[in-house]
Amino acid sequence: MKDMAYHKPASLAEALELKQSLGEGAIFLAGGTDVMVQARQRKIAPQALISLRGIAELRGARLEGDTLLLGAGTTLSQILADPLIALHLPVLTDAARVMGSTQMRNVATVGGNVMSAAPSGDTLCPLLCLEAVCHLASAEGLRLVPMQEMFLGPRRTAAQPGEVLTHLAIPLPAAGGHASAGAFLKLSRRAALDLALINLAAQLWLNADGGRIEKARVAAGVVGPTPLRLPEAEEALTGAPPTAATLERATQSLGGTCSIRDSHRCAAWYREEMLRVLLMRAGALALQRLGVSLEVEA
């Protein structure tokens, strides 16, 4: 890797100032598991790196009323160890558990995963389902961008060059006494150290007597240029009883939103088949977490 300047600011204000003075040639580094690989492979050639690892305010999760404020610099290992996240957001824990390897999870951050904006990024589908809001800080102030508006294309986000993702504000699904649970599943050739061939998250809310799905959020990755919410599946689930037949109907609704393609990693027809299977399984797992057990064949 060529020589470059390296800055490790201790505060967000200092990081933003550095970026302003260094300009385009400087890039932010959160955990570095993506930036360092790209720099070593000469896919990027930054003149300076601004490490965000020294900024304490970007780490950890805390509750603010009915919102969980997750620091963008929280590592995947910290997410796995966090009891608040395990309790309220198992869909996110599911994703953190199957990313990379122990060594990667010890370094890689959730904010880095969002800003890398890979179509396969495993935390992205859960964050879409949870309707997280990105807090983007810059010299001009704070800008809030809903996760659904964050991804513009492969490795392209709505963040401006001078902006740092500081937090993900996640409304607690169970706020106001709602019964809600989610699940995330990933299909990959190897269990560890592999990108998803396809991944999917579902978050379901039941009505007061548990007889109907009141609200559903479904998102999938590697089904288009960015991770996508699947509104057709959400519509098929909403208002329906929490049964295997409902999940089956939702799988039949899929297709319109996605633009699934062949790639050297996986054929399109297989992704299409497995998208249905993952929806069936993730839906069943989310319902199981709500105390509804289903006989699901898929």
């Binding site: 580094l29 598991t33 070593r40 990667m104 010890n106 370094v107």
Partner: peptide, 24 residues
Amino acid sequence: GECGACTVIVDGQALTSCIFPALE
């Protein structure tokens, strides 16, 4: 960072040193 041959322990945590900045 995909094979683990370069694993070292930094402050109690295993990580892959081939993609970890030295200055960190």
